[in-house]
Design a protein around this nucleic acid. Structure first.
Lengths: 214, 214
DNA sequence: TGTACATCAGTGAACGCGCGTTCACTGATGTAC
DNA sequence: TGTACATCAGTGAACGCGCGTTCACTGATGTAC
Protein backbone atom coordinates (compact mmCIF):
# COMPACT_ATOMS: atom_id res chain seq x y z
CA UNK A 1 0.00 0.00 0.00
CA UNK A 2 1.53 3.29 -1.07
CA UNK A 3 -0.64 5.40 1.25
CA UNK A 4 2.13 5.88 3.73
CA UNK A 5 2.07 9.53 4.59
CA UNK A 6 3.13 10.33 8.14
CA UNK A 7 -0.50 10.68 9.10
CA UNK A 8 -1.61 7.32 7.81
CA UNK A 9 1.39 5.70 9.44
CA UNK A 10 0.40 7.36 12.68
CA UNK A 11 -3.16 6.11 12.28
CA UNK A 12 -1.94 2.59 11.67
CA UNK A 13 0.13 2.71 14.82
CA UNK A 14 -2.79 3.88 16.91
CA UNK A 15 -5.05 1.24 15.43
CA UNK A 16 -2.45 -1.39 16.26
CA UNK A 17 -2.16 -0.08 19.80
CA UNK A 18 -5.93 -0.21 20.19
CA UNK A 19 -6.01 -3.81 19.04
CA UNK A 20 -3.17 -4.68 21.34
CA UNK A 21 -5.00 -3.27 24.35
CA UNK A 22 -8.22 -4.95 23.26
CA UNK A 23 -6.41 -8.28 23.43
CA UNK A 24 -5.22 -7.63 26.96
CA UNK A 25 -8.81 -6.74 27.82
CA UNK A 26 -9.93 -10.11 26.49
CA UNK A 27 -7.30 -11.79 28.61
CA UNK A 28 -8.51 -9.98 31.69
CA UNK A 29 -12.26 -9.87 31.21
CA UNK A 30 -13.19 -12.08 28.29
CA UNK A 31 -14.29 -11.15 24.81
CA UNK A 32 -17.46 -9.52 26.10
CA UNK A 33 -15.26 -7.22 28.18
CA UNK A 34 -13.83 -5.37 25.21
CA UNK A 35 -14.62 -1.71 25.82
CA UNK A 36 -13.62 1.34 23.82
CA UNK A 37 -13.77 3.51 26.91
CA UNK A 38 -11.49 1.18 28.80
CA UNK A 39 -8.99 1.07 25.97
CA UNK A 40 -9.01 4.84 25.64
CA UNK A 41 -8.35 5.24 29.35
CA UNK A 42 -5.27 3.02 29.14
CA UNK A 43 -4.00 5.02 26.21
CA UNK A 44 -4.38 8.26 28.11
CA UNK A 45 -7.18 9.34 25.83
CA UNK A 46 -10.84 10.00 26.31
CA UNK A 47 -13.42 7.54 25.01
CA UNK A 48 -14.82 9.46 22.06
CA UNK A 49 -11.31 9.92 20.67
CA UNK A 50 -11.24 6.28 19.61
CA UNK A 51 -14.13 6.84 17.25
CA UNK A 52 -11.60 8.42 14.89
CA UNK A 53 -10.16 4.92 14.49
CA UNK A 54 -13.07 2.53 14.83
CA UNK A 55 -16.58 3.59 14.02
CA UNK A 56 -18.01 1.27 16.65
CA UNK A 57 -17.15 -1.53 19.02
CA UNK A 58 -18.21 -4.26 16.62
CA UNK A 59 -15.86 -3.01 13.92
CA UNK A 60 -12.97 -3.44 16.33
CA UNK A 61 -14.04 -6.97 17.24
CA UNK A 62 -14.44 -7.87 13.59
CA UNK A 63 -10.92 -6.72 12.84
CA UNK A 64 -9.55 -8.67 15.79
CA UNK A 65 -11.25 -11.82 14.54
CA UNK A 66 -10.08 -11.38 10.97
CA UNK A 67 -6.53 -10.65 12.11
CA UNK A 68 -6.52 -13.79 14.20
CA UNK A 69 -7.87 -15.93 11.37
CA UNK A 70 -5.29 -14.55 8.99
CA UNK A 71 -2.41 -15.10 11.39
CA UNK A 72 -3.47 -18.67 12.04
CA UNK A 73 -3.84 -19.35 8.32
CA UNK A 74 -0.40 -17.89 7.71
CA UNK A 75 1.12 -20.14 10.35
CA UNK A 76 -0.41 -23.17 8.67
CA UNK A 77 0.46 -22.09 5.17
CA UNK A 78 4.08 -21.68 6.23
CA UNK A 79 4.24 -25.49 6.41
CA UNK A 80 3.27 -25.91 2.77
CA UNK A 81 6.89 -25.93 1.69
CA UNK A 82 7.58 -29.25 3.42
CA UNK A 83 7.65 -31.95 0.78
CA UNK A 84 6.73 -35.05 2.78
CA UNK A 85 2.98 -34.92 3.45
CA UNK A 86 3.24 -36.65 6.83
CA UNK A 87 5.88 -34.23 8.04
CA UNK A 88 3.92 -31.35 6.58
CA UNK A 89 0.74 -32.26 8.43
CA UNK A 90 2.65 -32.92 11.61
CA UNK A 91 4.27 -29.52 11.50
CA UNK A 92 0.95 -27.90 10.63
CA UNK A 93 -0.49 -29.41 13.80
CA UNK A 94 2.44 -28.08 15.80
CA UNK A 95 2.13 -24.68 14.17
CA UNK A 96 -1.52 -24.50 15.20
CA UNK A 97 -0.72 -25.50 18.74
CA UNK A 98 2.19 -23.09 19.02
CA UNK A 99 0.09 -20.25 17.76
CA UNK A 100 -2.81 -21.11 20.05
CA UNK A 101 -0.59 -21.25 23.12
CA UNK A 102 1.14 -18.03 22.14
CA UNK A 103 -2.18 -16.24 21.58
CA UNK A 104 -4.83 -17.97 23.66
CA UNK A 105 -7.22 -15.02 23.54
CA UNK A 106 -6.96 -14.93 19.75
CA UNK A 107 -7.56 -18.64 19.46
CA UNK A 108 -10.57 -18.57 21.74
CA UNK A 109 -11.87 -15.48 19.97
CA UNK A 110 -12.08 -17.55 16.81
CA UNK A 111 -12.99 -20.99 18.08
CA UNK A 112 -14.27 -20.41 21.59
CA UNK A 113 -17.77 -19.62 22.71
CA UNK A 114 -19.13 -17.15 20.19
CA UNK A 115 -19.35 -13.54 21.33
CA UNK A 116 -23.00 -13.02 22.29
CA UNK A 117 -25.11 -11.11 19.81
CA UNK A 118 -22.12 -10.59 17.58
CA UNK A 119 -22.28 -11.97 14.07
CA UNK A 120 -18.94 -13.13 12.68
CA UNK A 121 -17.85 -11.57 9.39
CA UNK A 122 -18.42 -13.59 6.23
CA UNK A 123 -14.80 -13.39 5.08
CA UNK A 124 -13.78 -15.94 7.65
CA UNK A 125 -15.05 -18.90 5.64
CA UNK A 126 -12.58 -18.11 2.87
CA UNK A 127 -9.76 -18.23 5.41
CA UNK A 128 -11.04 -21.46 6.90
CA UNK A 129 -11.06 -22.88 3.41
CA UNK A 130 -7.45 -21.87 2.91
CA UNK A 131 -6.44 -23.76 6.02
CA UNK A 132 -8.53 -26.74 4.99
CA UNK A 133 -6.85 -26.75 1.59
CA UNK A 134 -3.49 -27.41 3.22
CA UNK A 135 -4.91 -30.28 5.22
CA UNK A 136 -6.78 -31.74 2.26
CA UNK A 137 -3.67 -31.62 0.08
CA UNK A 138 -1.68 -33.33 2.77
CA UNK A 139 -4.11 -36.15 3.32
CA UNK A 140 -4.62 -36.61 -0.39
CA UNK A 141 -0.90 -37.25 -0.71
CA UNK A 142 -0.75 -39.63 2.25
CA UNK A 143 -1.08 -43.22 1.13
CA UNK A 144 -4.64 -44.34 1.72
CA UNK A 145 -5.33 -46.26 4.90
CA UNK A 146 -7.56 -49.13 5.78
CA UNK A 147 -11.16 -48.08 5.33
CA UNK A 148 -12.89 -46.90 8.49
CA UNK A 149 -15.91 -44.80 9.24
CA UNK A 150 -17.60 -45.96 6.06
CA UNK A 151 -20.86 -44.33 7.12
CA UNK A 152 -19.24 -40.94 7.34
CA UNK A 153 -17.28 -41.37 4.12
CA UNK A 154 -20.40 -42.35 2.22
CA UNK A 155 -22.08 -39.31 3.66
CA UNK A 156 -19.25 -37.00 2.64
CA UNK A 157 -19.34 -38.36 -0.90
CA UNK A 158 -22.69 -36.74 -1.40
CA UNK A 159 -21.79 -33.45 0.22
CA UNK A 160 -19.36 -31.35 -1.74
CA UNK A 161 -17.94 -28.74 0.47
CA UNK A 162 -14.34 -27.53 0.30
CA UNK A 163 -15.16 -25.43 -2.72
CA UNK A 164 -13.54 -26.22 -6.02
CA UNK A 165 -11.00 -28.27 -4.16
CA UNK A 166 -12.27 -31.65 -5.29
CA UNK A 167 -11.05 -33.61 -2.30
CA UNK A 168 -11.70 -37.28 -1.90
CA UNK A 169 -14.19 -38.11 0.84
CA UNK A 170 -11.51 -40.07 2.68
CA UNK A 171 -9.17 -37.07 2.71
CA UNK A 172 -12.01 -34.80 3.76
CA UNK A 173 -12.89 -37.16 6.57
CA UNK A 174 -9.32 -37.11 7.86
CA UNK A 175 -8.99 -33.36 7.51
CA UNK A 176 -12.13 -32.87 9.55
CA UNK A 177 -10.86 -35.26 12.20
CA UNK A 178 -7.54 -33.41 12.22
CA UNK A 179 -9.37 -30.21 12.91
CA UNK A 180 -11.72 -31.52 15.58
CA UNK A 181 -9.02 -33.44 17.42
CA UNK A 182 -6.63 -30.52 17.43
CA UNK A 183 -9.37 -28.25 18.68
CA UNK A 184 -10.51 -30.77 21.28
CA UNK A 185 -7.17 -30.87 23.03
CA UNK A 186 -6.34 -27.21 22.53
CA UNK A 187 -9.58 -25.76 23.77
CA UNK A 188 -9.66 -27.95 26.87
CA UNK A 189 -6.04 -27.08 27.52
CA UNK A 190 -6.59 -23.34 27.09
CA UNK A 191 -9.67 -23.43 29.27
CA UNK A 192 -7.56 -24.97 31.99
CA UNK A 193 -9.36 -28.29 32.17
CA UNK A 194 -6.12 -30.27 32.29
CA UNK A 195 -4.58 -28.37 35.17
CA UNK A 196 -4.12 -30.55 38.17
CA UNK A 197 -4.16 -33.70 36.11
CA UNK A 198 -0.40 -33.78 35.96
CA UNK A 199 0.23 -34.82 32.41
CA UNK A 200 1.66 -33.00 29.45
CA UNK A 201 -1.06 -31.90 26.98
CA UNK A 202 1.56 -31.69 24.25
CA UNK A 203 1.94 -35.46 24.28
CA UNK A 204 -1.81 -36.01 24.21
CA UNK A 205 -2.06 -33.61 21.30
CA UNK A 206 0.73 -35.29 19.38
CA UNK A 207 -0.70 -38.75 20.01
CA UNK A 208 -4.19 -37.78 18.86
CA UNK A 209 -2.86 -36.21 15.67
CA UNK A 210 -0.34 -38.93 14.94
CA UNK A 211 -3.10 -41.52 15.03
CA UNK A 212 -4.43 -39.85 11.90
CA UNK A 213 -1.09 -39.92 10.11
CA UNK A 214 -0.09 -43.54 10.37
CA UNK B 1 -34.44 -33.57 52.43
CA UNK B 2 -37.24 -33.33 54.93
CA UNK B 3 -37.21 -29.51 55.00
CA UNK B 4 -40.27 -29.28 52.83
CA UNK B 5 -42.46 -26.71 54.48
CA UNK B 6 -44.57 -24.67 52.07
CA UNK B 7 -42.08 -21.86 52.40
CA UNK B 8 -39.01 -23.87 51.53
CA UNK B 9 -40.86 -25.43 48.63
CA UNK B 10 -41.73 -21.93 47.44
CA UNK B 11 -38.10 -20.89 47.79
CA UNK B 12 -36.95 -23.86 45.79
CA UNK B 13 -39.37 -23.00 43.01
CA UNK B 14 -38.17 -19.42 42.85
CA UNK B 15 -34.54 -20.50 42.84
CA UNK B 16 -35.31 -22.87 39.98
CA UNK B 17 -37.08 -20.12 38.08
CA UNK B 18 -34.10 -17.83 38.58
CA UNK B 19 -31.75 -20.46 37.22
CA UNK B 20 -34.05 -21.10 34.30
CA UNK B 21 -34.06 -17.43 33.35
CA UNK B 22 -30.31 -17.22 33.84
CA UNK B 23 -29.93 -19.95 31.24
CA UNK B 24 -32.02 -18.05 28.72
CA UNK B 25 -29.84 -15.02 29.45
CA UNK B 26 -26.78 -17.08 28.62
CA UNK B 27 -28.40 -18.13 25.38
CA UNK B 28 -29.13 -14.54 24.48
CA UNK B 29 -26.09 -12.69 25.76
CA UNK B 30 -23.47 -15.20 26.79
CA UNK B 31 -22.35 -16.26 30.22
CA UNK B 32 -21.01 -12.80 30.99
CA UNK B 33 -24.52 -11.47 30.37
CA UNK B 34 -26.03 -13.10 33.43
CA UNK B 35 -27.58 -10.29 35.43
CA UNK B 36 -29.64 -10.42 38.59
CA UNK B 37 -31.45 -7.24 37.66
CA UNK B 38 -32.36 -8.59 34.27
CA UNK B 39 -33.67 -11.83 35.74
CA UNK B 40 -35.70 -9.97 38.34
CA UNK B 41 -37.26 -7.80 35.67
CA UNK B 42 -38.42 -10.84 33.73
CA UNK B 43 -39.92 -12.32 36.86
CA UNK B 44 -41.85 -9.14 37.53
CA UNK B 45 -39.71 -8.42 40.57
CA UNK B 46 -37.28 -5.71 41.48
CA UNK B 47 -33.57 -6.41 41.50
CA UNK B 48 -32.87 -6.43 45.22
CA UNK B 49 -35.60 -9.02 45.73
CA UNK B 50 -33.38 -11.68 44.25
CA UNK B 51 -30.88 -11.24 47.04
CA UNK B 52 -33.24 -13.26 49.20
CA UNK B 53 -32.34 -16.22 47.00
CA UNK B 54 -28.77 -15.69 45.94
CA UNK B 55 -26.37 -13.64 47.98
CA UNK B 56 -24.53 -12.47 44.91
CA UNK B 57 -24.16 -13.01 41.20
CA UNK B 58 -21.25 -15.40 41.53
CA UNK B 59 -23.21 -17.71 43.79
CA UNK B 60 -25.81 -18.07 41.06
CA UNK B 61 -23.18 -18.82 38.44
CA UNK B 62 -21.54 -21.37 40.70
CA UNK B 63 -24.83 -23.17 41.16
CA UNK B 64 -25.48 -23.17 37.44
CA UNK B 65 -22.09 -24.71 36.79
CA UNK B 66 -22.47 -27.35 39.49
CA UNK B 67 -25.97 -28.22 38.28
CA UNK B 68 -24.68 -28.65 34.76
CA UNK B 69 -21.78 -30.82 35.85
CA UNK B 70 -24.09 -32.98 37.92
CA UNK B 71 -26.60 -33.40 35.12
CA UNK B 72 -23.92 -34.36 32.65
CA UNK B 73 -22.41 -36.83 35.09
CA UNK B 74 -25.83 -38.32 35.68
CA UNK B 75 -26.38 -38.76 31.97
CA UNK B 76 -23.09 -40.61 31.68
CA UNK B 77 -23.62 -42.69 34.78
CA UNK B 78 -26.96 -43.83 33.42
CA UNK B 79 -25.00 -45.88 30.87
CA UNK B 80 -23.16 -47.84 33.55
CA UNK B 81 -25.81 -50.54 33.52
CA UNK B 82 -24.89 -51.64 30.02
CA UNK B 83 -22.86 -54.83 30.27
CA UNK B 84 -20.84 -54.75 27.07
CA UNK B 85 -18.07 -52.19 27.49
CA UNK B 86 -18.07 -51.19 23.85
CA UNK B 87 -21.80 -50.57 23.84
CA UNK B 88 -21.51 -48.81 27.17
CA UNK B 89 -18.88 -46.39 25.92
CA UNK B 90 -20.75 -45.84 22.71
CA UNK B 91 -23.92 -44.93 24.52
CA UNK B 92 -21.97 -42.75 26.95
CA UNK B 93 -20.70 -40.82 23.96
CA UNK B 94 -24.21 -40.45 22.63
CA UNK B 95 -25.52 -39.43 26.04
CA UNK B 96 -22.93 -36.67 26.20
CA UNK B 97 -23.81 -35.45 22.75
CA UNK B 98 -27.53 -35.57 23.38
CA UNK B 99 -27.17 -33.65 26.58
CA UNK B 100 -24.87 -31.07 24.97
CA UNK B 101 -27.26 -30.46 22.10
CA UNK B 102 -30.24 -30.27 24.44
CA UNK B 103 -28.45 -27.79 26.72
CA UNK B 104 -25.84 -25.97 24.69
CA UNK B 105 -25.53 -23.10 27.17
CA UNK B 106 -24.95 -25.56 30.01
CA UNK B 107 -22.33 -27.43 28.04
CA UNK B 108 -20.47 -24.28 27.05
CA UNK B 109 -20.78 -22.98 30.59
CA UNK B 110 -18.74 -25.96 31.72
CA UNK B 111 -16.37 -26.53 28.84
CA UNK B 112 -16.46 -23.32 26.86
CA UNK B 113 -14.34 -20.23 27.29
CA UNK B 114 -14.08 -19.69 31.03
CA UNK B 115 -16.18 -16.88 32.48
CA UNK B 116 -13.77 -13.96 32.91
CA UNK B 117 -12.60 -13.29 36.42
CA UNK B 118 -14.77 -16.05 37.75
CA UNK B 119 -13.10 -18.92 39.58
CA UNK B 120 -14.80 -22.28 39.13
CA UNK B 121 -15.82 -24.10 42.31
CA UNK B 122 -13.51 -26.84 43.55
CA UNK B 123 -16.25 -29.49 43.72
CA UNK B 124 -16.21 -29.84 39.95
CA UNK B 125 -13.10 -31.99 39.91
CA UNK B 126 -14.89 -34.66 41.92
CA UNK B 127 -17.64 -34.73 39.31
CA UNK B 128 -15.16 -34.86 36.46
CA UNK B 129 -13.56 -37.79 38.21
CA UNK B 130 -16.91 -39.57 38.40
CA UNK B 131 -17.36 -39.22 34.65
CA UNK B 132 -13.79 -40.32 34.03
CA UNK B 133 -14.36 -43.39 36.19
CA UNK B 134 -17.04 -44.62 33.81
CA UNK B 135 -14.74 -44.12 30.85
CA UNK B 136 -11.77 -45.73 32.57
CA UNK B 137 -13.83 -48.76 33.57
CA UNK B 138 -15.08 -49.14 30.05
CA UNK B 139 -11.68 -48.98 28.43
CA UNK B 140 -10.18 -51.27 31.05
CA UNK B 141 -12.74 -53.89 30.04
CA UNK B 142 -12.18 -53.44 26.32
CA UNK B 143 -9.65 -55.91 25.01
CA UNK B 144 -6.31 -54.17 24.65
CA UNK B 145 -5.37 -52.86 21.23
CA UNK B 146 -2.17 -52.65 19.29
CA UNK B 147 0.22 -50.35 21.10
CA UNK B 148 0.22 -46.76 19.85
CA UNK B 149 1.28 -43.45 21.28
CA UNK B 150 3.97 -45.12 23.34
CA UNK B 151 5.42 -41.74 24.30
CA UNK B 152 2.18 -40.67 25.85
CA UNK B 153 1.59 -43.99 27.57
CA UNK B 154 5.06 -43.95 29.08
CA UNK B 155 4.35 -40.46 30.26
CA UNK B 156 1.03 -41.42 31.82
CA UNK B 157 2.66 -44.31 33.66
CA UNK B 158 4.53 -41.85 35.80
CA UNK B 159 1.59 -39.54 36.44
CA UNK B 160 -1.07 -40.97 38.69
CA UNK B 161 -4.18 -38.98 38.35
CA UNK B 162 -7.68 -40.43 38.40
CA UNK B 163 -7.58 -40.74 42.16
CA UNK B 164 -7.67 -44.13 43.78
CA UNK B 165 -8.92 -45.52 40.52
CA UNK B 166 -5.75 -47.32 39.54
CA UNK B 167 -6.30 -47.22 35.81
CA UNK B 168 -3.82 -48.62 33.36
CA UNK B 169 -1.99 -45.96 31.36
CA UNK B 170 -3.45 -47.39 28.15
CA UNK B 171 -6.99 -47.03 29.46
CA UNK B 172 -6.24 -43.55 30.73
CA UNK B 173 -4.83 -42.61 27.36
CA UNK B 174 -8.01 -43.77 25.61
CA UNK B 175 -10.29 -42.13 28.14
CA UNK B 176 -8.52 -38.83 27.61
CA UNK B 177 -8.79 -39.21 23.85
CA UNK B 178 -12.47 -40.03 24.24
CA UNK B 179 -12.96 -36.82 26.13
CA UNK B 180 -10.95 -34.57 23.83
CA UNK B 181 -12.45 -35.99 20.66
CA UNK B 182 -15.98 -35.70 21.93
CA UNK B 183 -15.35 -32.16 23.02
CA UNK B 184 -13.62 -31.27 19.76
CA UNK B 185 -16.62 -32.12 17.64
CA UNK B 186 -19.21 -30.87 20.12
CA UNK B 187 -17.70 -27.49 20.80
CA UNK B 188 -17.12 -26.73 17.14
CA UNK B 189 -20.64 -27.87 16.38
CA UNK B 190 -22.20 -25.79 19.16
CA UNK B 191 -20.18 -22.75 18.17
CA UNK B 192 -21.62 -23.08 14.68
CA UNK B 193 -18.35 -23.78 12.90
CA UNK B 194 -19.88 -26.58 10.85
CA UNK B 195 -22.81 -24.61 9.53
CA UNK B 196 -22.65 -24.21 5.80
CA UNK B 197 -20.39 -27.20 5.40
CA UNK B 198 -23.31 -29.43 4.61
CA UNK B 199 -22.43 -32.57 6.48
CA UNK B 200 -23.92 -34.20 9.53
CA UNK B 201 -21.82 -33.64 12.65
CA UNK B 202 -23.41 -36.69 14.26
CA UNK B 203 -21.61 -38.94 11.81
CA UNK B 204 -18.30 -37.20 12.35
CA UNK B 205 -18.79 -37.54 16.08
CA UNK B 206 -19.64 -41.23 15.84
CA UNK B 207 -16.71 -41.93 13.55
CA UNK B 208 -14.21 -40.16 15.79
CA UNK B 209 -15.43 -42.02 18.86
CA UNK B 210 -15.75 -45.38 17.13
CA UNK B 211 -12.13 -45.21 16.07
CA UNK B 212 -11.29 -45.50 19.77
CA UNK B 213 -13.53 -48.51 20.32
CA UNK B 214 -12.35 -50.88 17.62
C1' DT C 1 10.08 30.73 2.42
C1' DG C 2 5.79 32.50 4.15
C1' DT C 3 1.07 32.95 4.49
C1' DA C 4 -4.04 31.20 4.14
C1' DC C 5 -6.72 27.56 4.41
C1' DA C 6 -8.40 22.80 4.98
C1' DT C 7 -7.95 18.66 7.32
C1' DC C 8 -8.10 15.96 11.12
C1' DA C 9 -6.89 14.20 16.24
C1' DG C 10 -8.56 14.54 20.44
C1' DT C 11 -11.50 16.93 24.31
C1' DG C 12 -15.35 17.59 27.39
C1' DA C 13 -20.04 17.62 28.16
C1' DA C 14 -24.02 15.20 27.63
C1' DC C 15 -27.63 11.32 26.86
C1' DG C 16 -29.64 7.15 28.33
C1' DC C 17 -28.68 2.89 29.81
C1' DG C 18 -27.84 -1.19 32.90
C1' DC C 19 -25.21 -3.14 36.33
C1' DG C 20 -24.27 -5.13 41.55
C1' DT C 21 -25.25 -4.18 45.91
C1' DT C 22 -26.93 -1.78 50.60
C1' DC C 23 -30.54 -0.26 53.32
C1' DA C 24 -34.69 0.95 55.75
C1' DC C 25 -39.24 -0.19 55.01
C1' DT C 26 -44.13 -2.56 54.31
C1' DG C 27 -47.05 -6.28 54.23
C1' DA C 28 -47.98 -10.96 54.02
C1' DT C 29 -47.15 -15.61 55.88
C1' DG C 30 -46.37 -18.71 59.41
C1' DT C 31 -45.86 -19.99 64.69
C1' DA C 32 -46.96 -20.29 69.72
C1' DC C 33 -49.98 -19.91 73.26
C1' DT D 1 -60.35 -20.96 67.45
C1' DG D 2 -58.33 -16.51 68.18
C1' DT D 3 -54.90 -13.42 69.30
C1' DA D 4 -49.75 -11.76 69.65
C1' DC D 5 -45.61 -12.08 67.80
C1' DA D 6 -41.72 -13.41 64.80
C1' DT D 7 -40.22 -14.43 60.42
C1' DC D 8 -39.45 -13.47 55.92
C1' DA D 9 -40.56 -11.90 50.72
C1' DG D 10 -40.37 -8.16 48.16
C1' DT D 11 -40.20 -2.80 47.40
C1' DG D 12 -38.20 1.64 46.41
C1' DA D 13 -34.66 4.76 46.94
C1' DA D 14 -29.99 5.33 46.72
C1' DC D 15 -24.75 4.76 45.72
C1' DG D 16 -21.16 4.52 42.48
C1' DC D 17 -19.86 2.59 38.49
C1' DG D 18 -18.93 1.83 33.46
C1' DC D 19 -20.71 1.43 29.05
C1' DG D 20 -21.56 3.05 23.70
C1' DT D 21 -22.30 6.83 21.24
C1' DT D 22 -23.36 11.98 19.61
C1' DC D 23 -21.99 16.54 19.31
C1' DA D 24 -19.91 21.06 19.15
C1' DC D 25 -15.47 22.52 20.01
C1' DT D 26 -10.08 23.56 20.15
C1' DG D 27 -5.66 23.13 18.54
C1' DA D 28 -2.25 20.99 15.97
C1' DT D 29 -0.79 19.12 11.50
C1' DG D 30 -0.50 19.15 6.76
C1' DT D 31 -1.40 21.45 1.88
C1' DA D 32 -1.55 25.00 -1.81
C1' DC D 33 -0.16 29.12 -3.63
Amino acid sequence: VSTSTPRTRYRENIRAEIKELALTQITESGAAGISLNGIAKRMGMTGPGLYRYYSCRDELITELILDAYRELAEAVRACETIADPRQRLRSAALAIRDWALAHPQRYLLIFGTPVPGYRAPADTTAITRAIMAVLLDGFAQLHPVDPDATDLIDHLTHHHWAGDHAASPAALRRALAFWTRAHGVLSLELAGHFTGMGFDPALLYAADIDALLR
